[in-house]
């Protein structure tokens, strides 16, 4: 953006945006609680994996290298990582552009995508208590799995979740920006979701993958988005430096790409006189 923002002004905008969005999201807390609940997939998968592990005895030829307690913590970590990296900018963006709210946003000296970032962060803050309750219930039901990550690990996990959110947000924003060209761009999100679902570690720890698939998966951003923070939260062994480096690399790639696409999209939008 051409306007140079002073730090103070940027902070003030951030504070106002976040607090209004938070107030807005609080109004929808019932829905957000249900959203949180609709992320039960890791718990279902935990059921299948733990039964398989129990049936087969030690490691059972699954190649997991995890104990029952570690497996449980991994999937809880995956649940938490998913909760705070859910992105819905495609839908919000499409709705706003159809409702004609986009044009006024474009006139303001603030890159409109920041609004959506603020909305997502506020929504995550609203989710926080529900996620905490679910995690507490989880440990009540599975006392054997109880263990908290060390403070250092926890902070690293928080950082990893934020970076994962950033990657997911940038990926989806790219699709959202395609709405400037095609009304049906939103459907592409369905396609993006498929590799995300299967390669991120949401349904299976990546250790269980055959080596070839695992290697391919690590060339995509997906395993870093759920599996990595989940491993950090669960206190499992993980190559911290290389994962953070990969995430930084993906952000370094996606950020300029998104900015370029945005500029091209706005140029098209204004040219169309919409």
């Amino acid at each position: 953006m051409s306007t140079r923002l002073s730090l103070a002004r940027g902070l003030r905008i951030a504070r106002v945006l976040l607090s209004t969005q938070y107030a807005y999201m609080l109004e929808y807390r019932a829905e957000i609680a249900l959203w949180a609940l609709s992320g039960v997939l890791p718990f279902i998968m935990l059921g299948v994996w733990s039964a398989a592990l129990a049936a087969g005895g030690d490691d059972a030829g699954l190649g997991l290298g995890l104990s029952q307690a570690e497996l449980a913590r991994y999937f809880l970590g995956a649940f938490i990582a998913r909760q705070f990296t859910v992105v819905w900018v495609v839908w919000a963006f499409e709705e706003d552009s159809l409702a004609g709210r986009l044009s006024p946003y474009l006139l303001q000296p603030l890159q409109p995508l920041w609004r959506y970032v603020a909305a997502h962060l506020a929504e995550q803050a609203t989710r926080l208590p529900f996620v905490a309750v679910i995690a507490a219930l989880f440990f009540l039901l599975q006392p054997a799995a109880f263990a908290l990550p060390s403070p250092g690990r926890f902070l690293l996990a928080v950082l990893a979740i934020w970076l994962a959110f950033a990657i997911h947000f940038l990926l989806q924003s790219l699709i959202a920006i395609l709405c400037f060209w095609s009304e049906r761009a939103q459907a592409l999100e369905r396609l993006l979701f498929i590799p995300y679902l299967f390669l991120s570690g949401l349904v299976a720890p990546l250790a269980a993958f055959p080596p070839g698939v695992r290697q391919v998966a690590f060339f995509t951003p997906f395993p870093h988005m759920i599996g990595f923070p989940a491993q950090l939260l669960a206190g499992l062994e993980v190559s911290i430096a290389s994962s953070f480096a990969a995430m930084a690399g993906w952000i370094a790639l996606l950020l300029p790409l998104t900015a370029l696409a945005w500029r091209a999209g706005v140029r098209r939008y204004t040219a169309m006189g919409a």
Partner: peptide
């Protein structure tokens, strides 16, 4: 995943 036989499902 492991090249072995695996425990199967239920």
């Amino acid at each position: 995943g492991s090249g072995g036989s695996g425990p199967g499902l239920g």
